[in-house]
Simulated scan of single mutants.
Amino acid sequence: MGTAKDIFDTMINRFDPIAASEMDAIFQFELDDAEPYFVTISDGSAVAEQGEHDDATVTLGMDTATLSEVMTGELDGMQAFMQGRIRADGDIMLATKLTQIFPV
Rank of each mutant, 00 (worst) to 15 (best):
M1F: 05
M1S: 12
I7L: 06
F8I: 12
F8V: 15
M11F: 02
I18N: 10
I18K: 13
A19S: 13
A20E: 09
D24L: 09
I26Y: 09
I26N: 04
F27M: 05
Q28L: 11
F29T: 08
D32F: 11
D32W: 07
E35S: 14
Y37W: 10
V39A: 10
T40C: 04
I41F: 02
D43G: 11
V47T: 12
E52M: 10
H53A: 05
H53S: 11
D54E: 12
A56N: 10
A56K: 11
T57G: 12
V58A: 05
T59H: 11
T59P: 10
L60I: 14
D63E: 05
T64C: 06
T64G: 02
A65I: 08
T66P: 03
S68A: 14
S68V: 02
V70L: 01
V70D: 00
M71P: 09
T72L: 06
E74M: 03
D76P: 03
G77W: 00
G77P: 01
M78N: 08
Q79P: 00
A80E: 01
A80Y: 00
A80W: 02
Q83S: 14
G84T: 07
R85D: 15
I86Q: 02
I86M: 02
I86N: 01
R87P: 00
D89T: 14
G90D: 12
M93I: 07
A95Q: 08
T96A: 11
T99D: 14
Q100G: 04
Q100H: 07
F102A: 01
